[in-house]
Design a protein around this nucleic acid. Structure first.
Lengths: 233, 233
DNA sequence: AAGAAAAATCTGGTTAACCAGTTAGTAGAA
DNA sequence: TTCTACTAACTGGTTAACCAGATTTTTCTT
């Protein structure tokens, strides 16, 4: 386990060094948007790493929209100037794994918005899905069982109803981190679960009657405990 | 070009079908958190696809925290129950590429928060970076040149100063989409650029004097044009 | 029969050869 | 000299063989 983590760290460091070298190359050769990068084979030879390593680094930069690979042709600098590329790559190299506090902070921000948008835009289908999650959650809690998953699904249903695919994606991205950390730190309290039923119900009602202000208010109340926890860590 | 896009679409459809099959497998076999999935080779044979296809699908599910691959051992269901897995995979399969409106909406939300946090948490080093971006932006605009990149770097510097790595990452993710769409739709106006200098300066000053309310207010003003554009599309 | 040692199998990860399509260079005709 | 046709090299992507470590099965000793 320890060895495994260590190896992944090493791989990450290697990848970062390759990304830095690609950045240097772009600067040194004054590559403009649309210009072609040297081939993967040349880069692997030049940097003294395998082609796989090069490919992974390129794919990461492609994810952030900095490079663009075209099959049987080459890898090209995206339609972003050299200044922005340097700034973005610097950020990419610096970014560490998110801490729990930053996850929670972001979740609260996102959900206070998605719940507002959901109240404005929800369809009847969205409403049904939320109701289903809510009922499942209520049932589990009343049975005295753990209901973290059903809780989560209710919140994801709200994100879907917001009609904003970007926020929906972001909610999906932070969800696993939230879950595992919650279980790790034992944030959840069983007494809170029954209280949670009423809070969820209130949020659902506000969305149903399409009252964005009330929906946001109720979500805020729902997060109050989490909020305090986040800032008292 | 058209062919290339078509092929990527096909690949995406295949990947989604594999993800759906993995979900079905988890349900059918009642796999609990920590249980082992069949090996990649078995899955590729069972589903009639290549191992590469299987690996890509697994990596995607790993990104969302649903699966966890351990070298020389196997692929395991993460510490998430079957209910949450079904909900999350449904979302993953549904998610479409983000539209421009959803990107802008999310950007505004994120930046109104990061600017507040930056005012509260900025270090002197953060301040220097913002100043450098601001100066570069001002210089370019006064020369009558395009300054989209410098604009962007200023906003990314604010995201860094917020001290929230998750929001910082999210800003990085939406940035390329924002840039390319801006250039595509020609949102930027040169008259706005000179106005932008004052607005950026106001935001910078507010962050410098650590006034979160004022910083948010100034950012809101800075976004007013963008905001209207977003909701009039 | 039980436990330990050893061998065979199976795992995800990595690598090198291969593929099909693009691109650059060359030769040849006009 | 100029343009065209053709060949050869090169491109990112894909595949099958290989790797080292984990796991299971077998075998041998007590």
């Amino acid at each position: 386990m320890k060895l495994e983590t260590l190896q992944k760290m090493e791989g990450l460091i290697l990848q970062k060094s390759i990304i830095a070298k690609i950045r240097d190359l772009i600067n040194y050769k004054n590559l403009e948007p649309g210009d072609k990068l040297p081939s993967e084979r040349m880069l692997s030879e030049k940097f003294g790493v395998t082609r796989s390593n090069i490919r992974e680094a390129i794919q990461k930069l492609e994810f952030y929209g900095i490079l663009k690979s075209i099959p049987q042709s080459g890898t090209f600098v995206a339609n972003i100037g050299v200044i922005a590329i340097n700034g973005m790559i610097e950020d990419i190299l610096r970014l560490e794994d998110p801490d729990f506090k930053s996850l929670v902070e972001t979740r609260i921000l996102l959900e206070l918005k998605t719940v507002r948008l959901a109240a404005l835009r929800r369809t009847d289908d969205d409403l049904e899905k939320m109701k289903a999650s809510l009922d499942a959650y209520t049932k589990k809690v009343l049975e005295g069982k753990d209901a973290v998953q059903e809780d989560l699904l209710f919140h994801l249903a709200i994100a879907k109803a917001s009609g904003n695919s970007t926020m929906n994606t972001f909610m999906l991205i932070i969800t696993p981190g939230i879950i595992t950390n919650f279980e790790k730190y034992h944030v959840c309290d069983k007494d809170l679960a029954t209280k949670g039923i009423q809070e969820h119900q209130a949020i659902y009602d506000a969305i149903k009657q399409q009252d964005p202000k009330l929906a946001k208010q109720k979500m805020k109340e729902h997060f109050s405990v989490l909020y305090q926890y986040c800032y008292n860590i």
